[in-house]
Nucleic acid binder design. Structure first.
Lengths: 129, 129
DNA sequence: AATAAAATAGTAATCATTACTGATTTGGGT
DNA sequence: ACCCAAATCAGTAATGATTACTATTTTATT
């Protein structure tokens, strides 16, 4: 711990203290309450860094913004096409269908993306060692 | 059927004849082989329309491009962080973990997004009727 | 053939995100 | 404490995928 700059710490705090899956701009505005002269570029850079390290999650729901989630544990996201909200839902029993129907949400489509390394790139990496 | 313009038909054909989950630009280049003077805006507009109607799927993996999928049936997408490929995987038994480990793919993160209408917006719609 | 509605080509504008630069901070070694 | 190198930062400029716009063309209906 404490490899974190004051700025990165504040950004992470904002993410951990909300469940709205904010955009970079939203995080920027919130962090400015604490660090008024923080740069938007700093917010973007740290969000990217935290995503790369797996500390946070980044998700695109198709509204033109990247959204971030301080909870990097596997769970489902319910995106409303009308109000644009993104709600969390548990992935009980690893079942997609169950998760989507959670809490009165009416799903019409769903997208599941796993991030990692494909078989081909895995074998290439082994050869390099 | 045949509410489709020649352009939209060609765009849909391109999507149905590949499994690379192309970007709008890639689709544009392919359709130009058939309709050389098609406009990039037409490609974007039709992709958006087809996505809205559920005919195709739109997914963002975080590489700065929107990707499209002619197969709108629920299935998993395996995105390689190294080569950027997006492979399809079946969702056997509705299990996320199984799908991600498919075919030598090594997952590190996953994102599941269900699109639809949330409980609150559902009740508002009912009141309008 | 006439008309209205929908879709298109081509181009201009948008704006979230990224890149860049010079200043500031941090941490380790002496 | 001091020095130095590596990271990180604030501020601003640039990028480029996507969207908006307009005049024209196509399509569907009568």
């Amino acid at each position: 711990m404490k490899n974190f700059s004051r700025q990165r710490e504040a950004i992470l705090n904002v993410l951990h203290s909300t469940d709205v899956h904010p955009t970079a701009g939203w995080v920027y505005e919130r962090v400015r309450e604490t660090i008024p002269n923080i740069s938007l570029g700093t917010v973007y850079r740290n969000l990217a860094e935290l995503t790369r390290s797996g500390e946070i999650l980044s998700l695109s729901v198709g509204d033109g913004y990247e959204h971030f989630d301080g909870n990097s544990a596997p769970h489902a996201h319910l995106h409303c096409r009308i109000c644009g909200s993104i709600a969390d839902a548990e992935l009980k029993s690893d079942s997609l269908a169950d998760a989507a129907r959670c809490r009165g949400f009416t799903p019409d489509t769903s997208v599941y993306i796993a991030y990692g390394v494909c078989a081909e790139c895995n074998s290439k990496k082994e050869k390099q060692i």
